[in-house]
């Protein structure tokens, strides 16, 4: 936090006037008909059916080693987008993000396939995050045990599409949390599974935090932000509205959201 020993603060993530713009094809006019699409093509210039969404507008901040930073803001304020940009997953329109090493997003959802068994998904998800074969092998039992999938029978040998949504979420979290990260970004991952699993996953996140240099957490749950973070960035409409110690920012945010 701001009044800790300042000389020892080592920056790990620097965002410098960062802008992120999404481009959406064919969404300019609400009409989805073929004639509307044709008239869009015939129009000249930038207007041709590409709609842009300016999701992050000129955000700058510096994050330091050992900090746990919460990202708050209403839905669609650009939190997840900012997280992906820091991880280098979304190209910046303007501005830059500098990082120490490779920040990673906690999550492998996109790499997993519903038609495959839980076992195959662990073997697929690990390498997707950059784990080696040996690492996966040595952690396989740990992942299965952590997910608790097999508590109600041999579900790990069944395709993921047969899982309940809670079970699938637990397996996804367990795979994602199996890897250690330098800079860790968590996008509302705390809210998965039942109460028992939530406790277990919160404990694992605290563990990951200890090992990671810097942690970013996106959440709508102010309590989990208070529990985890010592600094908060508040985003609204893609702009950084406030940046400071957790309590100060949350107080203003709660006033803003009318709590």
């Amino acid at each position: 936090m701001a009044d800790e020993t300042k000389s020892a603060r080592i920056p790990t993530v620097i965002a410098d006037d960062l802008h992120i713009v999404y481009r959406v094809n064919g969404a300019k006019s609400g009409k989805g008909s073929a004639t509307a699409a044709l008239s869009r093509i015939l129009k000249r210039g930038d207007d041709r059916g590409v709609r842009t969404v300016h999701a992050v507008r000129g955000v700058s901040f510096v994050a330091y080693r050992g900090e746990a930073i919460g990202l708050i803001g209403s839905n669609g304020s650009g939190k997840s987008t900012l997280l992906r940009a820091i991880a280098g997953l979304l190209p910046a329109e303007r501005g830059k993000v500098y990082t120490d090493g490779q920040p990673s997003l906690l999550g492998v959802n996109a790499a997993l396939m519903n038609d495959l068994t839980g076992e195959r998904n662990i073997i697929l998800g690990g390498p997707a995050m950059g784990m080696s074969r040996e690492e996966i092998k040595s952690r396989y039992q740990e992942i299965v045990a952590f997910s608790g999938i097999n508590e109600k029978g041999d579900f790990i040998a069944l395709p993921m599409r047969t899982y309940s949504s809670g079970m699938a979420a637990r397996l996804r979290f367990s795979i994602a949390a199996a890897k250690d990260h330098d800079e860790l970004m968590i996008d509302e991952a705390l809210a998965t599974g039942d109460r028992k699993f939530q406790k277990r996953s919160e404990a694992r996140i605290r563990e990951l935090r200890k090992e990671a240099g810097t942690v970013f957490l996106v959440s709508h749950n102010n309590k989990s932000i208070r529990d985890t973070c010592d600094r908060v960035l508040w985003l609204e409409r893609g702009e950084l509205r406030m940046d400071g110690p957790t309590e100060e920012v949350l107080k203003e945010y709660e006033k803003f959201t009318g709590k």
């Binding site: 910046a92 830059k96 500098y98 120490d100």
Partner: peptide, 8 residues
């Protein structure tokens, strides 16, 4: 501090 551009 030897940071590099993310996503370069």
């Amino acid at each position: 501090y030897g940071l590099s551009v993310s996503g370069a």
